[in-house]
Amino acid sequence: MGRNLYILAGTLLIFAMVSFGVSYTNIAQQPGSPGDTSLWRTMGLALFFLSMVISLAAVLSSLFEQAERHTDAERRQRRNKR
C-alpha cells in the first residue's frame, strides 16, 4: 500500500508544480483560459499540501509494515527454538 501512496503523492506534486508554472506564465492571461492567477497558486498550494500529507502517510505505512514483518519474524524464531 505504501508504494501506491508514493505514486499518488508524486502525481499530486507534479500537478502542483504545473499549477505553479501556469500561474507564472502567460497561459493564465490568454483569452478563454481560466486567468485567475491567485486561483492557480491556491490550487498549487493545496495540491502540494495534499501531496505532503499523503507522502507522510506512505512513510508511516511503510514503517508499520516493516515493524510488523520484523515482529512476525521474531515470533517465528521463538517458535522454532521451542
Rank of each mutant, 00 (worst) to 15 (best):
E65C: 11
L39F: 15
S33P: 02
M52L: 15
A57H: 04
T71W: 12
A46P: 02
G32L: 12
A28H: 11
A58L: 03
A28F: 03
R41Q: 07
G35W: 05
L39V: 05
A16T: 06
A67Q: 08
T37A: 07
Y24K: 14
F15M: 09
P31Q: 01
T71N: 13
G32M: 06
L60R: 08
E65T: 13
G10A: 06
S51P: 07
S38R: 14
F48W: 10
H70T: 11
S61I: 12
I27R: 03
S51G: 09
T11S: 08
L13P: 02
T11H: 01
S19K: 00
T11N: 05
F20E: 05
S61K: 15
L47S: 03
A46F: 10
F20A: 02
A28V: 15
A67D: 12
P34D: 05
E65A: 13
R41W: 09
F15A: 04
M17H: 05
I14V: 14
G21F: 02
L45P: 00
S38V: 12
A46C: 08
F48S: 09
S38Q: 14
N26V: 12
V18M: 03
F15E: 04
E68V: 07
T37V: 14
A58H: 03
E68S: 15
S38H: 14
L39P: 04
L13R: 13
T42G: 08
G35T: 11
S19N: 08
G35K: 14
V22D: 00
L50P: 01
A58D: 01
S19P: 00
D36I: 13
